[in-house]
Design a protein around this nucleic acid. Structure first.
Lengths: 350, 350
DNA sequence: CCGGGGATTTGCCACGTGGCAAATCCTTCT
DNA sequence: AGAAGGATTTGCCACGTGGCAAATCCCCGG
């Protein structure tokens, strides 16, 4: 006896097929398919017999063959620049959960923000193994739209990288969020609000800058040109640049800003470190607000106020867009904006 | 004209097949296959003609059909409890990179640590869409080994959850790492080293506890029973429990520990927060060491000494194991232990 | 006992690819 | 010129499944 209905299955090096099950159960292969797929008109007797054979042989339906036959696999791809960035890790997890609700499995691809790879996804990466893809593109430019596979490969773009064409997109409220952060600071009494982080680093930066400028304008507190502290969007750079600014201003006798709006939380956390190092009190001497609301923001000292783009919602919207696209490949492309919340914490209120 | 050799491809709602390309190029379908697969004996002229047809039609080889024909897809699965935990996110990214070197794509599955789901992976989840899997199991018990698909679905277990059977496994140096952490603290002059975190939370906990006890024993500094501060392995709990301990001891007139070895970095970071809050100086009054070496450990105040299990190495080893298993499905199961390093930072050296 | 009609079961075949080995072509050598 | 032998190209077919529609079965009423 090679296998048993229960207990350790034997080494099934040769895959079991429908026809094998059929032979053992004494029915046609097609009937096995009917049983497996839950077809209505199957007598209880046959169903039972087939099921017994399935169990005995350890039969498992071949997703590969099924995918070929049906033209879809139930797998979608999620392409992100990196999983090391908290935001994308959270996004990935949220997407996996949402996808599950639609009986979809997620294949995560890491693009490293590489334009070439993003193009490949655009063109339908491992297309026939996945039914479609979600992509957080950061390297693509508008001209890359031509690499898209079009309707033959459903694609939802996540983020601010807008591509001309019929794509479904879920955008992040960069501009609105940034503006909200600045308005919040103004309400806290801040007047000299500096921006931390190079705006041209990516599309998000440009949009956040715009929100920042708009809000300053609306608040009517612009005294001179806005102060922008250029820095790569990393913790280390945030710390370095802010420390430099503090020392430099001191020497030059310039008045410090009374608030920093950072392009992202990494920068903001670096700023907090620099401020702590030099004994600048937060938020009394200088308030700090970040963007992304990474988990760490809750635990920094002081806890960091941050714009939270609701990864959950982004995941939900993008999966829903993809699913609806799978159901109706011909429908027009849609753009949805996710919401944000300003999580107010001690780094800006005191 | 539906498509063009360059520019935006038309809406190719009907997939292009080898035979379509063949017809346009005026060759047999089989020749197209030869060209695509890089078969040696194809004349330059034919190759060119076929390539032109491929470009014109926008032909893409069907991975689904290919997978069916070849019995493998070039995709492997990675099952982890969650991507929200930094360690697993890092692992996932590292695995993706390593897999790439072997021309493998990674499909990430999130099990939530759910035993049922882990069993499914064990039995070869979406088996025929993936050639094998890596799994960080946390919910499985030894008795679940019977759900394994055996040699028909190559599987590498990552972590400490040992399963009887022929599985390939990559283990984490829990015991050794914990012992090293304690030895380090002893060398720093600490004598009352408390353990932070519930040891029974998972298998890692049991092993780390063992390493801790062994090291205490070896150092011969055990005065009484070792002190174990039970807490869920989260930052919040770490903070709460340590704060409680500090206050409690104070009231009871008990001498504080002079060092904390935390089951993981989250706990350790929570502990640092509690210590800072109560004004306990680190490391002079109390040294702290964590486990996992998450990125944040470098940036905490003070930076956290931590046992670094080398996610990179774990990823490398496990992918290599899987690849070698794919090449030789019959070979015996292997167990490899990854190394660790103790990253010494200011939380324990002063 | 027969025809009708729904319930079950089944045969046939295409999905798109690549392994295999035969067929054909071409060059070179005797 | 004819044959040998490598270079190219090709026909055939199975991989395992599910759509489709035909075949069969079975229960009832007339």
């Amino acid at each position: 006896m090679r296998d048993g209905p229960s207990g350790v299955e034997g080494v099934a090096s040769v895959p079991v097929r429908q026809s094998d099950v059929a032979r053992l159960a004494g029915v046609s292969p097609r009937t096995v398919s009917n049983v497996v797929s839950g077809y209505t008109h199957v007598s209880a007797e046959v169903r039972e017999k087939v099921q017994a054979a399935i169990d005995e042989l350890g039969y498992r339906r071949s997703d590969a063959a099924r995918g070929l036959r049906l033209g879809r696999t139930g797998v979608i791809a999620l392409a992100v620049p990196s999983l090391r960035e908290r935001y994308f890790a959270d996004l990935a997890e949220a997407v996996v959960q949402r996808a599950e609700e639609h009986d979809l499995t997620v294949m995560v691809e890491v693009t490293g923000g590489d334009r070439e790879r993003e193009r490949l996804v655009l063109g339908g990466g491992r297309s026939s193994l996945t039914d479609g893809a979600l992509m957080s593109a950061v390297g693509l430019t508008r001209t890359d739209a031509k690499y898209a596979a079009g309707a033959s490969y459903p694609l939802v773009l996540i983020g601010d990288r807008q591509l001309p064409g019929p794509f479904d997109q879920v955008s992040i409220p960069n501009e609105e969020g940034a503006a909200a952060a600045v308005h919040h600071l103004v309400k806290q009494g801040c007047r000299r609000i500096a921006l931390l982080g190079t705006p041209e680093a990516n599309r998000s930066g440009e949009l956040r800058l715009r929100g920042y400028l708009t809000a300053l304008d609306e608040a009517g507190i612009a005294v001179g040109p806005p102060r922008i502290l250029r820095a790569d969007w990393t913790r280390r750079e945030g710390q370095r640049v802010v420390a430099e600014m503090l020392r430099g201003d001191l020497e030059a006798g310039i008045e410090w800003p009374d608030a920093l709006f950072a392009m992202n939380d990494s920068l903001a956390l670096g700023a907090l470190a620099a401020l702590a190092e030099l004994g600048v009190r937060v938020p009394t001497e200088m308030a700090v607000v970040g963007f992304d609301d990474v988990e760490e923001a809750r635990f920094s000292n002081p806890p960091l106020t941050s714009v939270s783009p609701s990864v959950e919602e982004i995941a939900r919207l993008s999966v829903e867009l993809l699913v609806s696209r799978l159901e109706d490949p011909a429908r027009r492309g849609r753009r949805l904006a996710s919401r944000y919340e300003l999580r107010q914490r001690a780094s800006s209120i005191g």
